[in-house]
Design a protein around this nucleic acid. Sequence first.
DNA 1: AACCATGATAACATATTAGTTATCTGCGTT
DNA 2: AACGCAGATAACTAATATGTTATCATGGTT
Lengths: 96, 96
Amino acid sequence: METAKTIDTFSDYMNDETRVSPAERERINFEVALIGKMIEAREEKGLSQRELAELSGVKQPAIARLESLRATPQIDTLFKVLYPLGYTMQIVPLSK
Amino acid sequence: METAKTIDTFSDYMNDETRVSPAERERINFEVALIGKMIEAREEKGLSQRELAELSGVKQPAIARLESLRATPQIDTLFKVLYPLGYTMQIVPLSK
DNA sequence: AACCATGATAACATATTAGTTATCTGCGTT
DNA sequence: AACGCAGATAACTAATATGTTATCATGGTT
């Protein structure tokens, strides 16, 4: 007889393999780190979303969608936004 | 009077700021590193594109498009393919 | 109160990626 | 020669991201 798992926290959800595959977990962790750095870097530089839109060539509604995790971006969009914020991306071996 | 630049090599093209923006250059460098590691890791593991399609949930034609740089993928697709190959992605400051 | 800049969001059009199915060519192997 | 497996690719559909334009609610400022 199984005991049903409860999902009370974000970690409960993320660590439930029946709901989130390892690859999905990697993506979600990545995106959370991503928007953290994006928002912090943008605010450190004193830029509004509209100004970052100007600098990056990505429109303000798209930036808002990124920052609120309502889309999984394409990588060209990501590089356009990250560059003026002083960031880039790297491929690295899984730590694990 | 300007001397016209010639484009004889990939580097000539990549380093011409009038043609390739810095953000674009970052993306292109990233994608070249990406497919290098993807193809090497896949072959080291002795996997065919069809087998990797099975493992990753990304279809073989999509993997072929990735490996031949004929699309700028979405990041969820990237994580799905990279995970079974033992790789992930990170946000890092621009080295410059 | 009126104003202004902010981020969020709605609605729709456009662009691009991924899925689907099938096929093709090349390369070994039998 | 016939076969099977590889990667590449064609053609089309479905899904999704982004552009475009406009607006909204909020908070701060005058």
